[in-house]
């Protein structure tokens, strides 16, 4: 993985500045930056349309179903209540599956562009998303609660 240079002890993934991540670059340069009407919009193999398509994901039926599925697969009673039983172990495996399935729109965008422009030739890994650690329960202390 060339992308996520994460200093030890850091909780922030780093990228950009020639890190070679197509997902990052697509986001940065395809619809940002100076545009002057004198430029020739050279043929682009349809990249822009696809990228815009991948970026703007509306709340669709598909999205709803994915989140419903991910929720259904949560292990509701196992966490933090001590002792693992078989159900919990099985559910844990299922959660893993659901998580992989429902994360990563940037990856999706990059994949889409990759598909179109012909693959990962020099193939730096574009998937900075997955972290090794499992999420833990967090203490709830946020602005939201002050607002309530």
């Amino acid at each position: 993985m060339t992308v996520a240079t994460q200093p030890s002890g850091s909780n922030v993934e780093r990228g950009g500045s020639g890190s070679g991540s197509l997902a990052d670059v697509v986001e940065l340069i395809l619809d940002k930056g100076l545009v002057i009407d004198v430029f020739v919009r050279v043929s682009l193999v349809g990249i822009e349309i696809l990228t815009i398509d991948a970026r703007i994901v509306v709340a669709s039926v598909d999205t709803f179903l994915r989140f419903a599925e991910a929720t259904n697969r949560l292990d509701l009673y196992g966490k933090g209540k001590g002792g693992k039983d078989l159900t919990e172990l099985t559910q844990g495996i299922m959660e893993g599956g659901a998580k992989g399935k429902t994360s990563g729109v940037l990856d999706a965008a990059a994949d889409k562009v990759e598909e179109l422009i012909g693959g990962r030739d020099d193939a730096p890994d574009d998937e900075p998303e997955e972290r090794a650690e499992r999420p833990r329960r967090r203490p709830r202390q946020r602005v939201r609660e002050r607002a309530e």
């Binding site: 197509l22 697509v26 340069i29 682009l44 422009i117």
Partner: peptide, 12 residues
């Protein structure tokens, strides 16, 4: 035409 992965990365 422009628009390969290498083009995008080079520009950035």
């Amino acid at each position: 035409p422009l628009g390969t992965r290498a083009d995008l990365l080079a520009h950035e």
